[in-house]
Amino acid sequence: MIELTDTNSSKIAAEFIRSRTRAGSPAMGMVMTLVIVAPEEDAPEAMAAAKRASREHPSRVLGVILGDARGAAQVHAQVGSGDGWGGEIAVIRLKGEVVKHAESVVLPLLLPDSPVAIWWPTSAPADPAADPLGALAQRRITDSAAVPRGKSTAMLNQCRTYAPGNTDLSWTRLTPWRALLAAALDQHPLKVTRAKVTAERISPSADLLVAWLSDRLKVEVARGNSDGPGITEVSMETKEGPIRISRADGRLATFSSPHRPDRPVALKRREVPALLAEELRRLDEDDVYAEVAARLVKLRSTK
C-alpha cells in the first residue's frame, strides 16, 4: 500500500495506474466500484469483509473514513492492489471541511461506465438515496442489525425511506430461511392458515421475515421471542398439521412437516463477507424487498 498524504482524487487515480503497472498490468476485469463508508473504528473489519467479497466481485474498493468535520480540509489515502484483493483499493481518510463533501473525492475515482455500490457497515444515513455519497450508487447497502442502538427503529426507518436500489443485510440474512420455507411449500402444496416467527427479542431480520410471510401468504403472522441466536423457529399451520423449521444453535435446523419424519437441515448463520457477496451479485432493484419494506411499514402503522 502506498501512502499519500494531503492528496486529492487525481493523485489517487494516478497511483491506481502506477500500482497496476508495478504489478505487471494484470488483467483485472473489475466489474464495479464499491464504496464503503465507515468510522475509523469499524473500518478494518469492513475492509476485511470487502476483501473476501472482492474475490467474487473484482472491484475498485474505496474505503471512505469520515473523521472530524472541524478544521482545515485534509485528504489522506492508502492505495494498492493485489495482496488478496480481486481488484484495486484505496482507503481514503477525510478530515475537516471536506468531510461534508466526500462525494467530490469519490466521484472522480469511480470506474467508468460500470455500476457503483455503496455499503455502510454500521450506522447509515436515515435516507441513503438522498445522501450525497449514496446518490452516486445504484446499490445502497445498509445493515440495521449492526447499528449500535435502536436496531428495530433503524430497520423500520430504512423501510420508510426505501428507494429503488436500497437493500439491507438483515434481508440478505434471510435468504436461506426463505429458500427453505419456499421449498417446504413446494413439497407440501397446502394452504397456510397462520404462521409464527420466533427470534431473539430485537431482530430486524425477524421483522422482515414476518412482513414477507404476511405479504406472500396473506395471513396473520405472529412474532414470538426467544434467546436466539437470531431466528430460532418459523412455523406455518396447515390443515394437515404444522410445517416447522426450528434452529436453536444457529447452525443445524430441524425440519418437520405433516406425514413426514423430522429431518435435520444445515442452516448456518452467514458471515458478513458472504452476505456482501450475495448483495453484489445483482445490482438491479430488488422488487421483493421493496414489497416487504412497504409491508413492514404498513404492519407497524396499523399497530
Binding site: T172, Q187, R282
Partner: peptide, 21 residues
C-alpha cells in the same frame, strides 16, 4: 395447479432447491 405463494419470479435470490429425492 397449486401456486406456491412464497415463490415469485422476481425473487431471484432464492436458489433452485431440488424437490424431495
Amino acid at each position: 395447479t397449486h401456486v406456491n405463494p412464497l415463490r415469485d419470479p422476481q425473487d431471484r435470490r432464492l436458489p433452485r432447491i431440488a424437490g424431495p429425492c
